[in-house]
């Protein structure tokens, strides 16, 4: 077969690169550019240099929102990846029955949009007609009945639970793919050597799916650092700013307060912090020498 010329490679590549530039690079460059202006929208804007970033550095609501992103990320890492790992191990075990059905049921919430999930759980948490309060009333635990999402101390955790429910199946599928790649003879040899289930998990399975778990971790962090729609639907960032997150704060600045320039600066802040955290976590997880 005749080898393709370099220019043909470039011609084929130009289409995805062109689209990537339009969808990713142009908006990022645009946000960076607009963040240097005092801009309320429209053609008039005033160049103010890095003033928006100086304001951002001391903006309490932004840093509070950043901490909320971190909290949601930690909750989701434990809830989504942790539970997904347990479920994947259970589904991967030999005695499991109706495996396909379990897989489908666990994966089902992942196909729902964040808005639908938000509404479903909003109904569950509802004070007057919510299922949770109805169950509490039914079992006689009336003293625990409360407007769940109005509780500023609990709202963030309660908003994160639907996220766990939604994405657990997604990570489970990824981890199952990682488990499927483990050569069964390795496990069998360990069994013959007398390793119990916990030892097999810790010393064979976990090291062998380590890269899969790192991928899950990266996806979980990047997904939760830019979370918006779910929080927007469930709490709108409230009560007060108790569940506000960075992306919602950028939206509020840009479209509620008409501070497009500052909203762009918040978006750039999200980008920088997300990259920083992802790099730090990857460094931390990939730092060990491969000498096991």
């Amino acid at each position: 077969m005749k080898a393709l010329r370099r220019s043909t490679y470039f011609a084929y590549l130009s289409i995805p690169v062109f689209l990537y530039c339009f969808i990713i690079l142009v908006p990022v460059a645009g946000a960076l550019y607009y963040s240097l202006f005092n801009w309320a929208g429209g053609p008039k804007k005033t160049f103010i240099g890095v003033e928006n970033f100086i304001t951002l550095a001391s903006d309490k609501v932004f840093w509070q929102s950043f901490l909320h992103n971190i909290e949601i990320t930690v909750i989701c890492i434990i809830g989504q990846i942790g539970l997904a790992l347990i479920l994947a191990l259970v589904l991967n075990s030999r005695g499991i029955k109706l495996r396909q059905m379990h897989l489908s049921v666990a994966y089902f919430p992942a196909i729902l949009s964040a808005v639908v999930v938000g509404f479903i759980w909003q109904m569950l948490y509802d004070y007057n007609n919510g299922l949770i309060n109805d169950v509490l009333a039914f079992v006689g635990l009336d003293e625990y009945i409360q407007p769940w999402l109005a509780n500023a101390d609990m709202a963030l955790i309660l908003s994160s639970i639907p996220l766990i429910w939604k994405n657990i199946g997604y990570y489970m599928i990824i981890i199952l793919a990682g488990l499927a790649a483990i050569d069964s003879s390795v496990i069998e040899v360990a069994e013959i050597d007398g390793a119990n289930a916990l030892q097999r998990l810790m010393h064979i399975v976990m090291p062998m799916i380590r890269n899969t778990l790192i991928v899950c971790l990266t996806l979980c962090i990047s997904g939760n650092m830019k979370i918006f729609d779910h929080i927007y639907v469930m709490t709108g960032g409230g009560p007060g700013n108790a569940t506000n997150v960075m992306a919602l704060y950028a939206y509020q600045n840009s479209f509620i307060r008409y501070r497009m320039g500052y909203g762009s600066a918040v978006s750039v802040g999200i980008l920088i912090l997300s990259i920083l955290i992802t790099v730090l976590v990857r460094r931390a997880t990939q730092g060990r020498p491969e000498n096991e």
Binding site: A40, G41, G42, P43, K44, S254, F255, Y258, M260
Partner: peptide, 29 residues
Amino acid sequence: IQARAAADDLADVFIMKGSWVKNFYDSGL
């Protein structure tokens, strides 16, 4: 509307909030 105003891409005639008037006026929209 805010997104279209930011992009200087408003329609010829548009329904708008009273609280946007000052901002749109200052922006020459």
